[in-house]
Design a protein around this nucleic acid. Structure first.
Lengths: 352, 352
DNA sequence: CTGAAAGCGCTAACAT
DNA sequence: ATGTTAGCGCTTTCAG
């Protein structure tokens, strides 16, 4: 008997309601979904009957005929990463606000799984928000022809996107470090397939040249706390006084390692993270990092997606198809003046 | 033209494949979903053609006829809470492993939204994992008659559930505190509708009586970091030397407040959290807390749900319908010996 | 093992 | 404003 034959009758369909009211199913359908196209009296009666019978529309049947599913998907490489939680929060909140269901898919950093997911999804949701894709541009371009798509932190001509301007943020961070007297910094890079990581390094590199300081790119590292230890070790080996990390997870992971190795943050080493995730403000020491509301990114991406659904097929100037959201440096206690490196080996007591 | 008429032809359906192979649609359907019921040769041909044409099954059509949707929902009160991150991770991972899609719904701590969600979901997913429900038993019982349901951290006769034995954990925590010399502790309670919170307090209360120490229940508090400050203030006012918090979020939130008010943790106040969420190990000081793999909870709940789907309607002794998972105390640096309260006002130098 | 036919529950032209 | 009539894409009896 399964679950459909619970306490009451089996599934109540639209025709049960129609029969109860004594009208055609189409009338019920309209009363339920197109308020203006039936008389008020009729709407009342239908709603009453539907309520009475405990009618629940079957979304699958609805999708099948209408083509709309009233659901969007968020595709991310790793549900484990707190960064994405803020994104989930944003997309989920905005989807719900707009009456859409929210499907979450984790591709586990696998490009194949990502590709397969996009293919499947194209027939089961109205649109996709794709974050931190590991797929090449061409694949994304093709996917965006099959299903409305908004990519996050990726820029591809003609594909709608929302990116955070972290390269500019990295430049600010570098300025901050230079103004603190640092002249040799490291960028601890993210995954090689990460578009963002490459962009960030390029910005740092250029800015370093302009400022006349040296910058090393070290890595790649997995964007995880666990990899933070290796990143910290590498930074120490490169003899820099400041680190710009690909993300907060790496930075937070490094903090403990620095402590273990007797490298004081920020006295001996300044640390800058990126994203200002949950925890960045209460780790020890609290992290100087690039702040942007990831939740906001999720909302903007969702809005962009849903807006494009409205105008799908119609030749209306679609709303902004490309957003670049600003980020700013939040200075906490993990950055400080560069150690006086000359003083240390020669005469540590020079300072009174 | 929308998205269905991308670069190639419009949607490829099962009958396109059938036509290409020169067989009936039913044969294609079988070849795709019931491997054993067609000849191997036929399967090969169908698969080849499907692949060739870029056929993607339409899950909605599939659900409509078969009744199965190959998707489950996770319903939680607040995507914001890191506790649920781990749960999401667990359910999402296990669902995917079993070939199910994962729908995420946030009810925003609203009982009405939770009820409405459960009603809707009953026709759109194969089953629901419901965590931290704010609904009364009766409502859940009824819901579980309409859709396969597994509740997390809630126990209701006849409804499958996965709970973490935090009451027992709280007793351990109290033992730990008593062994450190504490004799007056506070329980900082969660939401009044939280079944878990009530259970925990009952366990603490009984255990305190047995151990001959005093325990106050203070609150309720919203289970958030923000509420941690108020909780800290309340604890200070109640003049206790140790706090058991409903969850880590509250505990972490309190840490900063204690610091601001000059209450040293753990010298002046011991703090115990619950759940061991992301951040509990790197906050300052690292939190003594009750550890249980929430991700594991998610996996177990999902497995239980999917197992019940297999046997739905069939009178087979369903697998364990009730799991109680253990938790254990992880001692970090937020708990320490009780301050020598007698000594302070009288003679602070008594200890040599 | 394969084909024919009947719908799943609903929406969307067409009619009226 | 409402009713009629086709299906959406697929699975599933029921026949062969």
């Amino acid at each position: 008997m399964g679950h459909r034959a619970g306490g009451s009758r089996a599934t109540v369909t639209i025709s049960d309601v129609a029969r109860a009211v004594g009208v055609a199913t189409s009338t019920v359908s309209r009363a339920l979904t197109q308020p203006g196209r039936v008389s008020d009296a009729m709407r009342e009666r239908v709603l009453a009957a539907a309520n009475e019978l405990g009618y629940q529309p079957n979304p699958h049947a609805r999708s099948l005929t209408s083509g709309r599913t009233q659901s969007i998907a968020l595709v991310i490489p790793d549900v484990t990463n707190p960064y994405f939680f803020d994104l989930i929060r944003g997309t989920q909140a905005q989807a719900k606000a707009r009456g859409y269901r929210h499907v979450l898919v984790d591709t586990e950093e696998s490009t194949e799984m990502e590709a397969a997911t996009l293919a499947e999804l194209s027939s089961s949701v109205d649109g996709v928000v794709l974050a931190a894709s590991r797929l090449p541009d061409a694949a994304l371009l093709e996917a965006s022809e099959r299903v409305p798509l908004v990519v996050v932190n990726r820029e591809i001509p003609t594909v709608p996107s929302v990116v955070i301007d972290t390269p500019r943020g990295m430049v600010q961070a570098l300025d901050h470090l230079v103004s603190l007297g640092h002249s040799s910094v490291a960028y601890l890079a993210g995954p090689p397939t990460s578009w963002s990581s490459r962009k960030r390094w390029r910005a740092i590199q250029q800015s370093a040249r302009r400022l006349g300081v040296t910058a090393h790119s070290i890595g790649p590292f997995s964007p995880t706390r666990a990899a933070g230890a290796a990143a910290a070790d590498a930074a120490i080996r490169h003899d820099v006084t400041a680190c710009l990390f690909f993300n907060d997870l790496l930075a937070i992971g490094s903090l403990q390692r620095f402590a273990e190795r007797g490298v004081r943050v920020p006295q001996d080493m300044s640390v800058v993270g990126c994203d200002d995730i949950f925890g960045a403000d209460f780790c020890h020491p609290p992290l100087t990092t690039l702040t942007a509301s990831i939740e906001h990114v999720g909302r903007v991406a969702t809005d962009m997606l849903l807006a494009s659904l409205q105008t799908a097929g119609i030749e209306v100037p679609a709303p902004r198809q490309r957003e670049k959201l600003p980020t700013h440096l939040t200075v906490r206690r993990s950055t400080g003046p560069a150690p006086d490196r000359a003083a240390r080996p020669i005469d540590a007591s020079r300072q009174p």
